Simulated assay, not measured.
Amino acid sequence: MGKLLVLLAVLCLGQIITAERIVNCYWGTWANYRSGNGKFDASNIDPNLCTHLSYSFFGINDNGDIQSLDTWLDYDLGFINKAVSLKHQNPNLKVLAVVGGWNEGSVKYSAMAGDWNKRQNFINSALNLLRNNGFDGLDVDWEYPNQRGGNWNDRSNFVTLLRELKEAFAPYGYELGIAVGAGESIASSSYEIANIAQQVNFINVMTYDFALASDGQTGFNAPQWAIENSINYWINQGAPANKLVLGVGMYGRSFQLSDPSQNWPGAPCRGAGGAGAYTGEGGYLGYNEICQNNWHTVFDYNNAAPYAYSGDQWVSYDNVLSVQWKMDFALSKNLAGAMVWSLETDDYRGLCGESYPLLKTINRKLRW
């Protein structure tokens, strides 16, 4: 009887451990090059706020081999080693290598996925990357199959690539994740959803960037209705809810108003908003920049999201309240968890209050 009770206790503990919701923290390592309070490196990471740390990005060459995009930062400065060493502070942390991203494009990935030899190069180089550096898995962020220079065969080739990766990773226990476009227009064009879902441990759904300055009008980066529609679409197309990880943008999309007196959602804009002091990119502001701006702020309950404006500048973003609403939805759908893009744009220094307010809000809802 005693042994039976111990066995039951172990089984129950195992269920608790495996049922823990994911908080996947993407880290844009290039933030090391930002100035002042925008500079971010491994010392700024609290590994206990994440179940997964996704080290971004690696790329590939024309032969399909995975390669460093910044060898000085990755190896000379030891960023990879510093990332993996965070497991000393949180032994349960999984550190993943992320290959791809928007700037890598789609053409090389389309060619690799459609060629057996290049796929094997990719898989073998992935195994070497993980083994040699102590990573716990790989996240494939191909943006996007059958788009940006890809072709229709990318859809089935992506399934093949993921299946072969899964088989290669199995003996080592490596995790395999993917980052995917969220909305129906992207997802229906790029993915055989039910088939890719069978090959991976989890799917990071990039539920943001629903409005851009190129639309010609202001709009919400991540309105609640768009997030719900996207997740419901993925589930209806055969993705198990417990493999879907809801994306939260720790940044806002900014716009330059055509007329500063017209400062509401849907107002005409003449282009991207001005660059932030840290991120330095037009149309994009980190939450750590937005919270210090002291602009006039409105919470739009129809979209469950805030926006702020000052003069001809307008930005839509997420704050603590909107993140709470998103997490309530994730819980209601029994999703695998949440991911953040990205650590270095949360208010990690606590310049506006507590440190990591958005990430801590996610943890309070999903884990604590």
Rank of each mutant, 00 (worst) to 15 (best):
I290D: 05
G249T: 09
I17V: 13
G149C: 14
A187V: 10
S185A: 15
D65G: 05
G286Q: 00
L96P: 01
L331E: 12
G283N: 09
E192M: 15
E281C: 10
E344M: 10
W116V: 14
D347M: 04
G59F: 04
S261D: 15
Q217W: 06
W325H: 14
N221V: 06
A179F: 12
I178Y: 00
K39P: 04
D70I: 03
P306A: 00
Y191R: 06
D318L: 01
I60V: 10
V99E: 00
G101E: 11
G337F: 07
G238E: 11
F329V: 10
G78Y: 02
N302I: 00
A187T: 12
I66C: 05
A194S: 14
E143A: 02
S54R: 04
R253C: 01
N24A: 13
D154L: 08
Y172P: 02
W234T: 05
I235A: 10
G283K: 05
C12R: 12
D41F: 07
M206G: 00
K118L: 10
W30N: 10
L4I: 13
L162V: 02
L212V: 12
I60S: 01
S185V: 15
N124L: 06
A9C: 06
R21N: 08
A197S: 14
N63H: 13
D328S: 14
N121R: 01
S68W: 07
N61I: 09
G173Y: 09
A83T: 03
G177M: 11
Y109M: 06
G149Q: 14
L359Y: 01
L11F: 13
V107T: 13
F122H: 03
K94W: 01
G238A: 07
N48V: 08
N48E: 10
S310F: 03
